[in-house]
Computed example of a mutant assay.
Amino acid sequence: MICNLCPRRCGVERTPDKAGGVCAMPAWPVAARAMLHQWEEPCLVGEHGAGAVFFSGCNLRCKFCQNGVISQEGYGKPITPRRLREIFEELVEQGAACLDLVTPSHFTDAVLEALGEERWPVPVVWNCGGYESVETLKRLENRVQVYLPDLKYALTEPAKAYSGAADYPETAKAAILEMFRQTGPYRMENGQLRSGVLIRHLVLPGELENTKAVIDWVAETFRPGEVLFSLMSQYTPQPGAEGKLARRVTKAEYRAAERYMADCGIADGFTQERTSAKEEYTPDFHLQGI
């Protein structure tokens, strides 16, 4: 296929076994692990964990990516849409609280084929970097119950410097509005998120103004009770990190972000302890479950 699934609009040919584009992936899925994941937000984990499938490749090139071995180095195992469906079924049988599809956007066609037309017994979660095409998202309507996008940046400069996507702020905002159009206000049952949008934002060292701009947009765009917001402190410097990215977020930075979030009236969501930058958040990718 000629691929224009994401905002990069590479226009390159990607076939089941021919890779291309910024994501550097074929059209059929490549995945690095499937597991019951305990380290998502509590409303996604349930008793046994979120049924996470970690896909390889990504349409962003974030300098701070904690999953770089699969997102940028391409580690993973090629599978068919049929095998992907079997993986979904296996995770449900294991007691997964949801199907947590991690960075699935460049495999949209295969994911939709694997999901089929029926409603799954647990919510399908589209866990993405926020850099999404509205046109592609519209194809997911009624097939995805929970959207879990990052809103990494509301300012152009860090978006360009750290992810090579100067258009990220406006692109991600448009995508999140489409997600909300599809799901409406979030809905919880027994502490578990059944439908809705949960926006994540990772606080980056030295980028408090960007965090404040993200919080401003969320607070100005959505009323209380419409979306959930997760303010994350788990930034971990990656090998070779330079400049601001070479250190962790300080206690003062994260507390300032928390206070700003509260002052803006965002109460529906999650914060983290600053010590949450643990290795558990980055699973070992050894093809388990694939």
Rank of each mutant, 00 (worst) to 15 (best):
L91G: 08
C23S: 06
E242N: 07
K160I: 01
R255S: 10
T80Q: 09
P185D: 08
I70S: 08
L137F: 02
G130R: 01
P16W: 04
D17T: 04
E157W: 08
K160Y: 02
L101W: 13
V111I: 15
L5Q: 11
P169M: 01
C264N: 14
L5F: 11
Q182Y: 07
D268R: 13
T80R: 08
H106R: 13
V53M: 10
D17E: 07
T211F: 04
C98K: 02
A277V: 05
G11K: 09
E135Y: 10
M179K: 07
Y186N: 03
A252S: 14
V203H: 00
K278S: 15
L115Q: 09
L198A: 09
W39G: 01
L115T: 10
E207A: 08
S56P: 07
T136K: 11
A252V: 14
A34T: 15
L115H: 10
W120S: 03
E40I: 02
P185M: 04
Y147T: 03
E242S: 03
G95Q: 11
L202K: 01
V218Q: 06
C62T: 00
P7N: 10
L101N: 09
A159P: 03
T15Q: 02
Q94N: 12
R200N: 03
P237W: 00
R223P: 02
L193T: 09
G68E: 03
P169V: 00
Q192D: 08
C6D: 10
E209G: 04
E280Y: 15
V30I: 07
V30A: 02
E253P: 00
E226Q: 10
T171Y: 06
A154L: 01
C10S: 13
R274C: 15
Q238P: 06
R143T: 11
I87S: 11
W39H: 07
G164L: 05
P123S: 05
A174I: 05
S230K: 09
V227G: 01
C98V: 01
A267G: 15
I79K: 09
S56F: 03
T282P: 03
E90G: 12
L148D: 04
Y153T: 00
Y162V: 00
G74E: 05
M1L: 03
T15A: 02
M188T: 04
L208N: 04
V53N: 09
G289E: 10
P121N: 11
L198Q: 06
S56A: 10
P29D: 13
L198G: 07
G68C: 04
M25K: 06
M1V: 02
S230T: 04
T80I: 08
H201L: 07
A52Q: 06
G116D: 13
E226N: 02
A97H: 10
E135V: 14
Q38S: 12
T156K: 13
R8W: 08
G191Q: 10
W120T: 07
K173H: 00
G243N: 12
G51H: 13
E93N: 15
I70V: 11
C128V: 14
L204R: 00
T221N: 00
R187C: 13
V102G: 02
P29Y: 08
G74A: 05
L140C: 11
